[in-house]
């Protein structure tokens, strides 16, 4: 299994609003996060939703975000976080 990103690496979720069955929540698009764990490889839900076989398998990552990086008006402490599973093709490396 080859992962383009490693645990602890900073990544940015791709932006945009393509049509179809997308499992990257809109509120995380364009946001900066940290790879928290490597979840395995899975069939691509964007293809599966339309009766295709979903291959090749896509690496999946648990990505952690600071709440204050997601919401500009976040009310809680700066240490609060949110994690979500994001497929590799929705992530870019961030220098």
């Amino acid at each position: 299994m080859t992962y383009a990103f490693q645990v602890g690496q900073t990544v940015r979720v791709k932006g945009g609003d393509p049509p179809g069955h997308i499992r990257t929540p809109a509120y995380l698009r364009g946001k900066l996060g940290l790879v928290e764990s490597l979840q395995g490889e899975f069939r691509n839900p964007e293809e599966l939703a339309y009766g295709k076989d979903g291959r090749p398998l896509r690496p999946l990552y648990l990505v952690r975000f600071r709440q204050t990086d997601i919401w500009s008006g976040y009310q809680g402490p700066a240490t609060d976080t949110l994690s979500a599973d994001i497929y590799e093709h929705w992530l870019d490396a961030e220098e």
């Binding site: 499992r23 990257t24 929540p25 979840q39 395995g40 899975f42 839900p45 999946l60 648990l62 952690r64 709440q67 809680g76 402490p77 240490t79 609060d80 976080t81 949110l82 994690s83 979500a84 599973d85 994001i86 497929y87």
Partner: peptide, 15 residues
């Protein structure tokens, strides 16, 4: 308390 980190986990995929 604010000393506790709250971590929301959004089950967006296969887990």
């Amino acid at each position: 308390s604010d000393q506790v980190e709250i971590k929301v986990v959004d089950s967006t995929a296969d887990m």
